[in-house]
């Protein structure tokens, strides 16, 4: 039985909003209101967090022949931002190396679908934070897809990890009202691989540039 509640954690019935605890998370999973798949081991669900695993797809930022990454222009003549990344895949159980000061994007192995009244934040498990890795990401209510995670090794030593390792922790927060994720156009719907920055696709860029001549 995947979703049997422990009974050890008392449901916080007074708290309609705020941090979700284990039984609340399990309850949502059982009702399929919250999706985390694949959940390879039920003990990934902790008292207030769920452990997520490193997925199989990585984008590493590389120093290319261009002097800088241009976030100000998006046309057919300019180099796309994604060309600054090297894409690579690993099978579960194969290793990946985080080089010092190289930002890496990866997707969690787990596909997530959040209810419209729950948002989540992602942090590194402390074992990895202690190695000099850092991350902080928020996931909007209603989001569906694998979480895209950006990590940089801030230490001076490369760090080797296995794909599939539990590296990230997710915490869920309940809001007092629903937020409609699809009210605006979403670029990242149902993403299952990491997506490079789309900073140069910001619709305000044209407006900002036009202000220069005023």
């Amino acid at each position: 039985m995947w979703f049997r509640k422990t009974g050890k954690t008392q449901m916080n019935s007074n708290s309609k909003t705020g941090l979700l605890i284990k039984d609340e998370i399990l309850d949502l999973l059982e009702k399929k209101e919250l999706i985390i798949e694949p959940l390879l081991e039920i003990d990934q669900v902790g008292e207030i967090t769920v452990d997520l695993r490193i997925g199989t797809d990585f984008l590493s930022l590389q120093q290319g022949r261009n002097a800088f990454i241009d976030t100000t222009t998006n046309n057919i003549k300019s180099r796309p931002i994604k060309s600054h990344y090297t894409q690579t895949r690993r099978k579960i159980g194969e290793y990946f190396l985080f080089h010092p000061n190289q930002p890496v994007l990866f997707s969690t192995l787990e596909y997530l679908k959040l209810p419209p009244n729950i948002y989540a934040d992602l942090n590194l498990r402390s074992s990895f934070g202690r190695l000099g890795l850092g991350l902080s990401t928020i996931i909007q209510p209603g989001y569906c897809g694998c979480a895209s995670v950006e990590i940089t090794n801030r230490g001076n030593t490369p760090i080797r990890v296995l794909s599939g390792t539990r590296m990230v922790q997710i915490r869920f927060y309940k809001l007092d009202s629903n937020s409609e994720y699809f009210n605006k156009v979403r670029k990242y719907t149902c993403q299952v691989r990491p997506v490079p920055s789309k900073a140069n696709e910001d619709s305000e860029l044209v407006k900002l540039k036009s202000m220069k001549s005023k």
Partner: peptide, 29 residues
């Protein structure tokens, strides 16, 4: 129907990919 044609194409492909991947990972696990 509310998504653009490019998004529809991407969503279908992404969900197929992840469905297969989840099955294989689960089985191997």
């Amino acid at each position: 129907k509310e998504f653009s044609s490019r998004q529809r194409y991407n969503i279908v492909n992404n969900l197929i990919e992840k469905s297969i991947s989840n099955y294989v990972v689960q089985k191997n696990w």
